[in-house]
Amino acid sequence: MSREIGEVILDLKNVSLAFGGVKALTDISFDVREHEIRAIIGPNGAGKSSMLNVINGVYRPQQGEIVLRGRRFARMNPYKAAQAGISRTFQNIALFKGMSVIDNIMTGRNLKIRTNLLLQALWWGPARREELAHRAKVEEVIDFLEIQHIRKTPVGRLPYGLQKRVDLGRALAMEPSILLLDEPMAGMNVEEKQDMCRFILDVNDQFGTTIVLIEHDMGVVMDISDRVVVLDYGKKIGDGDPDAVRSNPEVVSAYLGAGH
C-alpha cells in the first residue's frame, strides 16, 4: 500500500453521552490516526452511530472532549466539523429527496462557494465560473463512483444501493480529510458490497482520506480496516488490530451473546 499511517489526527477522550436515562456512551476513549481506516463495531444499539454523531457535533456529549489536529473541542457543532474537514454518510440515507443526483453532490461543495446571492441571481461572471468549476469537480466524483448514467435522476427514484453511493458522493465532494461512514454496506447484495469496498479503499488510497467506518459485516471489517474499536452497551470492550480484536474473549462473548 502506498499510504503511510501517520500521527493521531482525532482523539476522543472520556466521552459520555446519555439520552434521559439511556446511557448511549460511557466513558469512551480512542484515537484515529491520519490515513488509517478505523472501524467501529458492536451489536445493534451499542452506541456506534451515537459515536459518529458526537464526532461531527450532531450530538453533544455530557462529558469528554474531542481533540482534532491538536485543537480541543468541548462542544463540536456540525458546521465547525464540516469546516474542519469532517464529512459523513448516514445509516438511514439522508439525501435531499427532491433534488437530482448532481444537485445532491453539488451541495457537498457548499463550503467552497465564494460568490454571493446577488451574483448568483444575475448568473454574473464569477458566479457562473464558480458554478462550472464545482460542476467539473462533481463530475470527477461521479466518474469515480461510476454513476454517470444516473446523474440527472431525482435521488428519490434510485434503488437503495445507488442511493448509498450518492450519499458517499456527496460526502466526497467536500474533499474531506476525515470521512465518517455509518454502515455504508448495510442492506446491499454481494456485488454492491464489493463495489462499495473498492470505493472505500480507493478513497483511502488515492486521496489519503482518513476513514472511520461502522460496519456489521465482519468479513469486510477484518479485511479492510487497520484498527478496530468494539462497543457494547455503550462501553468500549476492545480496541486494536483486527486479529487482536478477533481473539479477544470479551468481544467474542459479546457477539455470541447478541446472537451474531
Binding site: V58, F96, T107, N110, Q120, A121, W123
Partner: peptide
C-alpha cells in the same frame, strides 16, 4: 438563476433534510 445555483441548493437542502444540510456545511 438562484434556484440552480448554490443558494437554491441550500434552500432545497434545508427543505429536504435539515440535519444532513448542516452536516455538509450549510448554515
Amino acid at each position: 438563476n438562484m434556484t440552480r445555483c448554490a443558494v437554491g441548493r441550500q434552500w432545497m437542502a434545508i427543505r429536504d433534510m435539515d440535519v444532513a444540510a448542516e452536516v455538509i456545511g450549510i448554515r
